[in-house]
């Protein structure tokens, strides 16, 4: 373990403002992609139940 306290860990030796946005945005993007794909699959399946032909299933 490299750190003696939580504050030291969050500070990242003074580079926290660069390190945490990098990890944070990466995490947000990857989680968002998974959620968006689950929504898209749900929508695609729903369009099969109601095959109106006019429904937008690409969103």
């Amino acid at each position: 373990m490299q750190w003696n306290s939580l504050n030291e860990f969050l500070a990242m030796g003074g580079y926290g403002i660069y390190v945490w946005p990098s990890f944070g945005v990466t995490a947000v993007c990857m989680v968002w992609e998974v959620l968006a794909l689950r929504r898209r699959h749900g929508a695609a399946r729903a369009a099969l139940v109601h095959p109106s032909g006019t429904m937008d299933v690409t969103s």
């Binding site: 794909l37 689950r38 699959h41 695609a44 399946r45 369009a47 099969l48 095959p51 690409t58």
Partner: peptide, 14 residues
């Protein structure tokens, strides 16, 4: 693979 499953359903729905 998740995305390709949605693409299959959207493109092959008939």
């Amino acid at each position: 693979l998740m995305r390709v499953r949605s693409i299959i359903l959207e493109r092959e729905r008939h």
